[in-house]
Design a protein around this nucleic acid. Structure first.
Lengths: 339, 339
DNA sequence: AGATGTTAATAAAACGTTTTACTAAAACGA
DNA sequence: TCGTTTTAGTAAAACGTTTTATTAACATCT
């Protein structure tokens, strides 16, 4: 039988108020023996307070919504991990929502989360255009922060990553290693982070006075398949090195290279982006740009919790810095020029 | 201002009952014009019913708890994905709990999930011993099904995988490819699935009348680090092939091989277990045993939902069958004998 | 002895729904 | 026309807590 506070109260011969007070540690004015009696009863009966009923009156659920494209992608999984950990520590738990970048599903979920009265949501939504974001914010009247997304205005709460600089760093490394014919497999360019990374690629080229060659860039999809396809397109166009806009696609690229008999890095240098865990295990280990996803997830929680508790959105959005991780997928060419 | 049913009712000049009836589609006895008026009002005000209040009275939250060791591990991530998808389709949503195989955390989360009144939980808990499972089941008085876990009794609800057969298949493949000195990097042996996989390894050896050599087996941890360490231990012990008890460790093994200058499969054949997505992209592509994690997750949801809705636990636990996926990490030796 | 303060506890309202049982009015059948 | 059924709707209880205001009993101070 499911215990309720009323039952406990009756058994202990006290009022529900008393039980409630004890459970919530507002003991000051409760006699020691009464408290002990009630506590023992709770212990014995295995009573657990009904969070639903509590939420009803406290107006908070201690629940966070987490919307990401696909938990199966290690990139998002690591963010999710950082988020779940930080949330737990802050006394919150997390509802997981996979959106597949699907706008419609995103909206449905937002609505669900509203019905469920989550205290706030963390949204990783690479695909949404700026005006859609505004729309979301307007529609969803609770704390919501964008993760993996650069803030667009002062008012927008978000934690992001300096993608442009990251890509710049990567391509500069390629150039310093003596490459001049540098290709790029981008992310889906409707996506802001993909644009930024592409910009960084261009930045580095420009700095080195290398002419960008449109033949050398192909738009990918941030999936393994995109990397694979990209390599097959690029393979006969003479590039000696390639920036691949995320590690996940880079894995696809490795696969294509293997199948096409292209040796990394002897025949083709590859540099990735994200530094997923497995990148260390690839053969050869993938040189890539490190993005601290777990920390970013934690930061997102910090921001949303502060928003929830203070009632005020964080005044500034957070931007994380890239760091190049050099491993073995980039070949140093003899004629390398120093910058 | 947050809308409530009462407000809507007042605006429409009807009772809350009427509004409730309309929202829940129990319209039969509501006049068309009244309904339209109310519906319009709901639309205009952006009113969303309060799920908490509803749960209060319906006694169900349409929420599932999902407890897994670590979402960062693609093995669990794919299960989670299958689960979330199936749950959504069935009208449920999912609270994500990472346990890190930590017994204590597991218990805390179970308690939290009880407080939150989840309708059921799916538990992927490789580490728990059998009596602990019993304990959990007893303590947690709601529908709960074990995933990635073979049923131990008729009464236990679970969906699992035939690990033993899978490992057997893998090792038989090694033997058929001409290997006789076959090593094994197992999972953590306190863990049932690890034991089963190890047994399968032994089975195949026995069938081929090959003497098991304890020098050739090392206990791993199902993490990349374990695979790495395993290879370093095994490398000078003369094995020509190695079963690695999961792909995740196999990646670590690849890393170690690269660092030690061991060529796969020329110097050492490797066969994995799980068939994670990235295994296709490894160089060389990893031969492995396919485990249909997404389908298993879906099945788990099917079972729990049926339990929730019928009030009866599923009568039989489900066992999924292994399938060998041959790629390029196993070398065919000339002197190969056919079985 | 009366006023004041402190301690230990409680009754009742509130949260926002769903559901049950009920009713008033209109329509129908004979 | 009267009785019956159907239609359109409602009042009120219930769900399990938290919180506010209140009280009764007792101790302390002057």
């Amino acid at each position: 039988m499911k215990m309720t506070m009323k039952e406990i109260a009756k058994m202990a011969g006290v009022s529900v108020t008393t039980v409630s007070l004890i459970i919530n540690g507002k003991d000051q004015s409760i006699g020691a023996e009464t408290r002990d009696r009630v506590l023992k009863l709770i212990e014995e009966t295995g009573y657990v307070p009904n969070g639903i009923a509590r939420s009803m009156i406290t107006k908070q659920t201690r629940t966070l919504g987490l919307m990401i494209p696909d938990i199966t992608n290690p990139y998002f999984a690591s963010m999710a991990r950082g988020i779940e950990d930080a949330a737990r520590k802050a006394g919150y738990h997390v509802i997981l929502c996979n959106t597949d970048e699907n706008q419609e599903r995103e909206m449905e979920y937002l609505q669900l989360l509203r019905r469920q009265n989550v205290d706030g949501v963390i949204l990783v939504s690479a695909a949404t255009a700026e005006h859609e974001e505004k729309q979301i914010l307007k529609e969803f009247k609770r704390p919501l922060i964008f993760l993996d997304r650069r803030g667009t205005e002062q008012t927008e709460a978000s934690v992001g990553f300096d993608n442009r600089k990251g890509a710049y760093l990567a391509v500069r490394h390629l150039i310093e290693s003596g490459h001049e014919k540098i290709g790029c497999i981008t992310g889906p360019l409707k996506n802001k982070s993909a644009q930024e990374r592409y910009q960084g690629y261009l930045d580095a080229l420009k700095e080195a006075k290398l002419d960008p060659n449109p033949e050398w860039v192909v738009e990918g999809d941030y999936q393994m398949a995109g990397g694979e396809a990209g390599i097959r397109i690029l393979k006969d166009r003479g590039v000696t090195a390639c920036l691949i806009a995320n590690d996940w696609m880079a894995y696809g690229a490795y696969k294509a290279c293997y199948e096409e008999g292209i040796q990394i890095p002897q025949d083709l240098s590859i540099i990735g982006f994200d530094d997923l865990l497995i990148s260390q295990a690839m053969i050869p280990p993938l040189t890539t740009v490190h993005q601290p996803n777990i920390a970013m997830g934690e930061m997102a929680v910090e921001q949303i919790v502060s928003w929830i508790q203070s009632g005020k959105p964080p005044k500034e959005s957070k931007l994380f810095e890239p760091r190049l991780v050099v491993r073995n997928s980039v070949r140093k060419r003899k004629e390398g020029r120093k910058s």
